[in-house]
């Protein structure tokens, strides 16, 4: 058997048995046995982490990677790190609750990296959490239908994992949003609805079309556009005027810096309301 096939076999077994896409070096050495270690040229009785890593490196290719945890290193399938974490969370949720300290210890990465991954998964809404009176966080839902690769799987909902609550950092932008009451709420809602109506997956919507859709006078539209922009809810972009009529160009927008804009993007609704 080729070394690469052997490593694949061991990791696949782990994946099937424990749902993990990685294995610690110590566990790997034990699984390899004498023959496997010989195949990898790991003849020392107690090879160090660096020795093991050196022996594995030639066989990593595009299938495997080495991850460094806080105590030891791991051999893993070459997958996006968020997927590795997500898979662990999914499996853990099925077994019941556990503390974040335990979770960190078992992760094939350092604590900071794990927290960053966890936050990204939260941001991508692949997991959702709630906070209790003691500031403990419970994972309430794992959204299995969301995959960055575009494929979909059955939705699985599981509950229970507690982790230490870290208060969100309130950015200047969030603070601005909270205090923004300059435009009437109705206008803000109408603007959003008109944008959604035109968006339909386009992401970048033409300003002239939005203007037409709302049918407001110029100043009413422009002042709310400026307001949303200052709040960071709307971003303006140059667009492509080559296929636009003179009228459409005239109904676009020029800001105080004399930058001319044709399209706009809007933050998701959940971030605004």
């Amino acid at each position: 058997m080729e070394p690469i096939d052997l490593l694949d076999k061991i990791l696949t077994q782990i994946k099937q048995k424990e749902g993990k896409n990685y294995i610690s070096f110590a566990a790997l050495l034990s699984k390899l046995g004498k023959t496997g270690r010989k195949l990898l040229d790991l003849t020392e009785t107690k090879p160090t982490v660096s020795m093991t890593e050196k022996s594995l490196r030639p066989y990593l290719g595009s299938a495997f990677m080495i991850l460094k945890g806080s105590r030891t290193s791991f051999l893993a399938f070459k997958l996006p790190i968020d997927e590795i974490v997500f898979e662990v969370l999914r499996i853990k949720f099925q077994k019941g609750s556990f503390s974040p300290a335990q979770l960190t210890q078992h992760m094939p990465m350092k604590k900071d990296e794990f927290i960053a991954c966890f936050n990204r998964l939260l941001e991508a809404k692949r997991i959702t959490v709630s906070v209790n009176a003691e500031f403990k966080v419970t994972v309430r839902n794992v959204d299995m239908s969301r995959s960055t690769t575009g494929s979909t799987t059955d939705s699985t909902t599981t509950t229970a994992v507690t982790t230490t609550y870290q208060p969100p950092i309130l950015t200047t932008r969030s603070q601005t949003f909270v205090s923004s009451v300059l435009s009437p709420q109705d206008d803000r809602r109408q603007f959003r609805e008109a944008f959604d109506e035109l968006d339909k997956g386009r992401i970048f919507v033409r300003i002239c079309n939005l203007r037409r859709q709302l049918g407001w006078d110029e100043e009413r539209f422009n002042s709310l556009l400026r307001q949303f922009r200052t709040e960071g809810i709307v971003q303006l972009h140059t667009g492509d005027i080559s296929s636009m009529s003179e009228e459409e160009i005239a109904q676009s927008f020029t800001d105080e810096n004399n930058f001319f804009y044709v399209t706009l993007t809007m933050k998701p609704q959940t971030d605004i309301r």
């Binding site: 595009s62 299938a63 399938f77 070459k78 997958l79 996006p80 968020d82 960055t148 690769t149």
Partner: peptide, 8 residues
């Protein structure tokens, strides 16, 4: 992420 997924 797409590159890793493709490689995998």
């Amino acid at each position: 992420y797409l590159i890793s997924a493709k490689a995998y």
